[in-house]
Nucleic acid binder design. Structure first.
Lengths: 139, 139
DNA sequence: ACTTTTAGTGTGTATATGCACACTACTGAA
DNA sequence: TTCAGTAGTGTGCATATACACACTAAAAGT
């Protein structure tokens, strides 16, 4: 029967995994003067051309208002600049030079973190894990 | 060569997945008057016999101080009670009757959430995903 | 023209997360 | 017996997360 096996709780396992991963990347990111979350947003903005805040938030599976505050922080730090988009009445964001440089500094640390996970999981499981996470994201 | 493919960023994907899953479970949990995170901690405490705060935190891959505040909140809500352990100089936690009842109320919602994920992933992928998440947790 | 819909913006409040730090009390060795 | 180590506790600060709510302005219907 096996009802209510909490070792199979997706919530628990997903949060535990995210906390563990975040901690690992965070410790490295701090060496470059930012948090892991900030790194994620910077990367997302770098890939952006003309995305509205809501679209960017969707791409990160993040609440729009969460992103607003994250980006506001990055603007205060001088890493990101915003302006109104010509079409589509939305804001758009871009990295400042400082932001681009900082991201460049953080890249070797990111590569190390990725390598750490890779060697922890093994190459085959690494790709399977990524794809499992992606599938969960569009729940 | 394919250097620096951020679609393979473990941090990004893990956080995205956790946000998506948390949101889903959270919306259901709120119907029972708690958050998804509180549900997780309540479940963990229910399984506890004589665990110190640090051990409980480890089991959740959560920082000890984060857990302290989560539990303090649950105590204020009257769902959890704490006392000093006889051996091992640590605190130990237990559900109050109110906590046990609330958890009971939340169970059908939890089962629905698990079912939603199950049907989103398919049964085989479900188990593979859980095991991938577990592996990430002890990074 | 004006009013409604709609696509976008931001703020208030509550919770979650973790690092740095400080505190307390057993435990054991000089 | 005092004192260093250690296993535990909690707080200050900064950030992250999301829901409810309120606001603004473009688009579109009448």
């Amino acid at each position: 029967m096996e009802e209510d096996d909490f070792t199979l709780c997706v919530l628990n396992n997903a949060r535990k995994a995210a906390r563990a991963v975040s901690r690992h990347y965070d410790r490295l990111a701090r060496q470059a003067g930012m948090t892991a979350g900030q790194f994620s947003v910077l990367v997302a903005i770098r890939q952006t051309t003309e995305e509205t805040t809501g679209e960017l938030a969707d791409r990160l599976s993040m609440d729009r208002t969460t992103l607003v505050r994250n980006v506001a922080l990055l603007e205060r730090k001088g890493l990101v600049a915003s302006s109104m988009s010509s079409e589509s009445r939305g804001k758009c964001y871009r990295l400042t030079d400082k932001g681009r440089t900082l991201l460049e500094d953080a890249l070797p640390l990111w590569r190390k973190a990725q390598g750490d996970v890779m060697s922890h999981l093994g190459e085959a499981d690494f790709l399977r894990t990524i794809s499992a996470l992606k599938k969960l994201s569009d729940l």
